[in-house]
Simulated scan of single mutants.
Amino acid sequence: MRSTISGYTRLPKIHKFSVAGIAATGAAVVAVAVAPHAFAADTASASAVKPVAWSAEAFGETQQDALEQQTTAAVTAAKADAGKVSAEKERAEKQAANRSTERKALEAKPAAAKPAAPAKPAAPAKKAYADNVDGWISEALDILRAKGIPASYEGIKKNVMRESTGNPRAINDWDVNAVNGVPSKGLLQMIDPTFKAYHVEGTSWDIYDPVANITAACNYAADKYGSMDNVNSAY
Score class of each variant (00 low, 15 high):
D131H: 07
P121F: 01
E57W: 03
A24E: 06
V75I: 06
D142N: 04
Q70W: 08
K126A: 13
K114N: 06
N132D: 15
A48H: 07
F59M: 12
E102A: 14
D65N: 14
P121M: 00
D173C: 13
V32N: 07
A92W: 06
S100Q: 14
V182F: 15
K157L: 02
A217F: 03
Y220Q: 01
P12K: 15
T72L: 11
W54P: 05
A116M: 07
S47E: 06
G83E: 11
T215A: 08
W136K: 04
A92Y: 08
V34N: 05
R145D: 10
Y220I: 05
V200T: 03
T43H: 08
V52P: 00
K127F: 00
L67A: 14
A23V: 15
N172H: 03
G155K: 03
Y8D: 08
W174T: 15
I22C: 09
E90S: 14
A130K: 11
T43Y: 12
L188R: 03
S86M: 06
V231D: 00
A122F: 02
A125Y: 05
L144R: 02
P193M: 03
Q63T: 15
G26K: 09
A31K: 13
T72A: 15
A197M: 10
N172S: 05
A128D: 04
I149V: 15
K185I: 01
V19W: 04
S6D: 12
S227N: 03
S100L: 14
A41R: 07
G202F: 04
A82F: 08
A24Q: 04
E163L: 07
A82Y: 04
D42E: 05
A221F: 07
A122T: 03
A87R: 08
S152A: 01
E139M: 10
A66M: 12
G148R: 11
A27P: 01
A146Y: 06
K196C: 03
Y129E: 00
T76R: 11
A113W: 12
K196S: 12
Y198V: 06
Q64E: 09
R99D: 11
K79R: 10
A77T: 09
A35E: 09
A113T: 15
Q64A: 15
V75F: 02
N132A: 02
M228H: 00
A105L: 08
I207G: 04
P118H: 12
A197S: 14
S204A: 08
Y198E: 00
T71Q: 11
E88F: 05
L11A: 05
I137T: 07
A73K: 09
I22E: 05
F39S: 12
A112N: 08
A197E: 14
Q64W: 09
S204C: 08
P36I: 01
A116G: 10
E57R: 13
Q69H: 10
A123H: 04
I156H: 01
I214W: 07
P150V: 02
A122C: 03
A96R: 11
A178C: 07
K16I: 10
K126I: 01
T71M: 09
K109N: 02
G83V: 02
A77F: 01
A66C: 02
C218L: 02
V179C: 01
A146P: 07
P118E: 15
G186L: 03
P183K: 08
A125E: 12
K89G: 10
A28C: 04
K50R: 13
A40F: 10
M1F: 10
I207L: 09
I14N: 14
D229L: 07
P118G: 05
S184E: 00
